[in-house]
């Protein structure tokens, strides 16, 4: 079963002057439950739009989107919110972590926003921190962590709700080559270990080798 299945998805924006901008044009993409897909394209190519749609943040103009067996095409806004709480994880490029929460609390944010699992969540957070090598940094604020450590916390948070799909938006953009490779190795091992699908949006060719396959996107079109 695929973790993500987008078929013939179109996203059209209507501008203020009546003209239309097609951000995604007839995009079809399937990602298996243990696949890591790199989504590569220049700025403005539509990769952010695709990511947003896959994550249930944007709705489609045409087409169908199924994530983890759930068809989210016609979901209302509250339904999409619930979907994001449970089925999807995000690692953003910037403004990833809540600045006034320590590492552990940043992981627990997800639990606070959705149905509370309290002690189960706390156990999971501690476990994730240990696996990510952050146990001794659990009480530190983001400002006290290095760039790489912050990314790891973000990854931990993305994994908290045991998602079917994790979306990574330029995870290595602010890191140097060595650190970037470290983070990608971590991403790969964590995803494979847990059998979670991942889409990594990037324009950095150096990291595509950590992914199972690469999909190119140009001007809203996916290359085969």
């Amino acid at each position: 079963m695929s973790a993500l299945h987008m078929s013939d998805v179109r996203k059209v924006y209507r501008m203020g002057d009546g003209s239309e901008v097609v951000a995604l044009d007839h995009a079809t993409l399937s990602v298996d439950h243990d696949e890591i897909v790199a989504l590569v394209g220049p700025s403005g190519s539509g990769k952010t739009t695709l990511c947003s749609i896959a994550g249930g943040i944007l709705s489609v103009t045409e087409g169908r989107v199924v994530v983890g067996g759930e068809d989210i095409t016609e979901h209302s806004s509250p339904a999409l919110t619930r979907f994001r709480q449970s089925k999807v994880g995000f690692v953003f490029q910037s403004v990833n972590l809540v600045p006034f929460l320590n590492a552990r609390e940043n992981l627990l944010v997800v639990d606070e926003l959705g149905p509370r699992r309290r002690s189960a969540a706390r156990q999971r957070a501690d476990q994730l921190l240990e696996e990510l090598g952050l146990t001794d940094r659990a009480k530190n604020l983001p400002s006290e962590l290095s760039g790489g450590q912050r990314q790891r916390v973000a990854i931990g948070r993305a994994l908290m709700n045991d998602p079917d799909l994790v979306l990574f938006d330029e995870p290595t953009s602010s890191l140097d080559t060595a650190l970037g490779e470290q983070v990608m190795e971590l991403i790969r091992s964590e995803m494979k270990q847990r059998d979670i699908a991942a889409v990594v949006v990037t324009h950095d060719d150096r990291i595509t080798r950590f992914c199972d396959r690469t999909v190119e996107i140009v001007d809203g079109h996916l290359a085969a």
Binding site: G55, I57, P78, T81, R82, F83, R84, Q85, S86, F90, F92, V95, N96, V98, P99, V109, V110, L113, G114, R157
Partner: peptide, 16 residues
Amino acid sequence: LALYGVLKALGARSAT
């Protein structure tokens, strides 16, 4: 606003 964007992406409702 940026922080709120992140929270909403993570699944926070506006009401929360």
